[in-house]
Amino acid sequence: MNAFDYQQVADSEQAIEQAVRSRRAKYLGGGTNLVDLMRETVERPQALIDVTRLSRDIDETAEGGLIIGAAVTNSALAGDARVRSRYPVLARAILSGASAQIRNMATVGGNLLQRTRCAYFYDVAARCNKREPGAGCDALEGFHRYHAILGTSPSCIATHPSDMAVALAALDARIHLRGPEGERQLAITELHREPGERPDLETELQPEELIVAVELPPLPMAARSNYRKVRDRASYAFALVSVASMVELDGETIQDVRLALGGVGTKPWRALRVEAALRGQPATEATIAAAVDAELTEARPLPGNAFKVELARRTLIAELSRRIADARNGGEA
């Protein structure tokens, strides 16, 4: 790990001031990903600006949603009674990620900005376009069992590893940003970029811009939402495929549906094609299967991760069927 300066700041204003003043600074949340990457020399910041003193509050919004401070820990968010009853998909996604120890450290802001677990990204002896644009990608013909089948490019097939972000994508969360130019908001689906030719550019954040909060809009159907994570171990492993899902029925018609996928996308993957194909349609096996296929025809699998197309298909169908059954049974999750 290279030597660096360290500064703890009291609020976002100070953080941004400090970032503008420093050269090659990084904001430090719980450190669970950044410290690891610094040890691997993948990240070599000259300065760390500790933003864990930023808001740790979870508050009600006027619209009936929640606004979550960027420094709220993953554990605190998953344990919040309002999140557990109104947005169980979010609590369950967080709880299925990492370990209790890491969830106690990791912050909401940091979780969103964690970087891929691609082995070739981590190994500085390997070629990686994300680490070094133009260097090439050793994952394409290497080990890519954990890699993406959606949103990939010839430059990069790395997955975004967050579980929490997948739930947030399904919930239409809004990301509150603050930078030298002031405040703005992005939809969660706009925060992360697909790799294209610049896999090194992972988000729409501008230099020095900081995530200050995440807002959950009110969403009654989310009370019957769920998160299913398929992985190689029974716990403490990254997703091969994960599904965040919720369904609202009107009789036997799918009135509304929210779906997002983890483990298969280069970013937290909102399955908009499935949603579009299901809205207003009868809740039958045939419509579900056709809708799922509409998304997965976009998949660009490689030999080592081709199984994910089938795995995602089966998991999506199983989860949609369950949500529909739950909705029929009067809304018990």
Binding site: Y6, G30, G31, T32, D36, S99, N104, M105
Partner: peptide
Amino acid sequence: CTVLVDGERINACLALAVQ
């Protein structure tokens, strides 16, 4: 490396002492 910080368990290896 698990230790308790203010009663909560964390991985001390990922925690910078200064923080």
